[in-house]
Amino acid sequence: MDKEKTILIVDDMEINRIILAEIFKDNYNILQACNGDRAIEMLNGAYDISAVLLDLVMPGTDGLGVLRDMKKSGKIVAIPVFLITAEEDEKTLMEGYHLGAVDIIRKPFMSHFLKHRVNNIIELYGHRNDLAKVVEEQIARLNHLNQSMIEILATAVEFRDCESGEHVKRISGMTKALMTEVSNRYPEYYMTADEVDKISKSSVLHDVGKISIPDRILTKPGRLTPEEYEIMKLHTVKGYDFLMQFPDIIDESTYKYSCDICRYHHERWDGKGYPDGLKGDEIPIWAQVVSIADVYDALTAERVYKKPFSHEKALEMIKNGECGTFNPKLLEAFESLTNNWKNNN
């Protein structure tokens, strides 16, 4: 057996610790704690602990206290805990089991049985933890693959527009940063980091509706006529309709923001945007965030028909309302965020 695994022995009586250490020292690295608090410290420290042999009766934080802490931190799921006991009443033992203890070690110790039982369970937990890790990795790979497919689709659409895939990636990055800033600054817009991540991933689809815009309009070198512009504006609704055909994608929580973002990323704070003329916070905050990111990126990127504007110029244009009106709180967050970027570069 490899001696890479570590057992933590927790008992207030030195004799008990030494005996257990003697029983397991050939097969495991041994850590010892003489009270519950020390045990908790070690469990939350840098040690990679494979099992805990835990005395129930100890002065200060007792065995149940250690179990409660492990339950709270979630460690109880991955680390088997054996309760060391001489005769504790049934109620205490049941509570121990409820808190997640795996087995009971009776005093006086029966060395040979004890060795086998602890070895078996450590092995079992090892397999289980490995399996959980594999599943986790697979899920991460699948999610990554999903995101790649979504990005491929979005980039294919941008390609017709003579854009590189970089636009989509920049929007996603900026959306994440701005949404995080807004969420930190304004409690009414608070979102967890997980949700912010989903919004950022959803944002790559904002212009997917452009797939339905004819080439002669989408790639027209000159100015659009009013009729053409009306057709161009339809990319919001078309994108929304398009995504609504794939409930598997939008119901799945990662992309649940995509429909809103498609439909509303050209709405404006004063109600003068399109397609629905929503006003203020009728526009979901995630769509507001993508609008600003989209406008800023369009201004600062180089296009066939224009040179890139500087950060200062783009910011000024956005603040002046040259690209429509935005939520003042959002503008504030955006300005401080982009200034920070500039100062750090």
Binding site: I19, E87, P108
Partner: peptide, 19 residues
């Protein structure tokens, strides 16, 4: 608490009368 602790170590050292 003390008697419990003594019981435990006496048992583990097989000091039967004390255990």
């Amino acid at each position: 608490e003390k008697a419990h602790a003594i019981k435990g170590i006496a048992g583990n050292l097989s000091i039967t009368p004390i255990y």
